[in-house]
Design a protein around this nucleic acid. Structure first.
Lengths: 142, 142
DNA sequence: GCTTGACTTCGAGTGCGCTCGAAGCGGTAC
DNA sequence: GTACCGCTTCGAGCGCACTCGAAGTCAAGC
């Protein structure tokens, strides 16, 4: 397939695919009749994997390391596995950190809920005219 | 406290703190004797919250929206809560997506483990000289 | 009174990951 | 045979979030 169809299929622009080839993330594609890139469907598997690495926060320079190892054959299997294990650990850590943040957000949101309930019981029709004391009491939610 | 100490306490550089004030993420700080910024420890709570938003992937333009609402008092409580709830949903979705990726990574890593075991049983002392057939069999792990 | 060091403003520079436009070529449809 | 569309290369530009350097001010310690 041509670059345009590949772009449609993998959800990138042709520009981005050429950029990836240029920097070495994608192998140099065979040119049909000497000009246009011709792709085999198998490239999609690799692109999806790259996308997985990208969306899990791996910077391009690390993807490049992996891509280069991949290009050199089975002798680098072990090194590639280690690279992935390192990344796996980073992703796991990120998940943990995000879960902590989720709890913190929940607490904050709950604080707002309480503040709103207090405001509506003290001044049901016009909460914007609440004075100093109430303001001080809701300060934690800010 | 002065900007240097605040920087030390919150783990940012003074440059970044000034930048945040410039764009409106931090309130304009009171200048002692007309020149140097003087901070109250309470600013740390706000900075930590900003950091939480940042590390969970909120772009600065959204933090700015929140910061501006915060500056206008209790009338915007509801809007701020909605903003946080939206962000909470985004963080939860991100966690889900990362967990999927974690499984995918585990599968891939397991594939490498298998490939290495096969390689070492076929050619225990020099795995780099394995030939074509073995290579085809390990292709999935690439 | 002079050194030191932390502060001030302003604007330019950096690294990342694309994103786009210009200028030109080539194959297919009518 | 020509209009059109998608492809080619190359290099510049962009949005984000800082990051840094220059040039100058100011207060405290010796």
């Amino acid at each position: 397939m041509k670059i345009g169809e590949l772009a449609r299929r993998c959800g990138m622009t042709a520009h981005t695919i050429r950029y990836y080839e240029r920097i070495g993330l994608l192998p140099y594609a065979h040119r049909d009749g000497g000009q246009q890139r011709e792709y085999d469907a198998s490239i999609l598997v690799w692109i999806e994997f790259l996308d997985r690495l990208k969306t899990t926060g791996m910077p391009i320079r690390d993807m490049l390391r992996y891509a280069k190892l991949r290009g050199t054959g089975d002798a680098t299997n072990r090194e590639r596995r280690l690279l992935l294990e390192e990344h796996r650990a980073a992703v796991a850590a990120r998940i943990t950190s995000l879960r902590e943040s989720l709890s913190a957000l929940d607490a904050k949101i709950a604080g707002y809920g309480e503040a709103e309930r207090r405001l509506s019981s003290h001044a049901p029709s016009n909460p914007s005219e609440t004075g100093r004391p109430l303001r001080a009491r809701t300060a934690r939610a800010r």
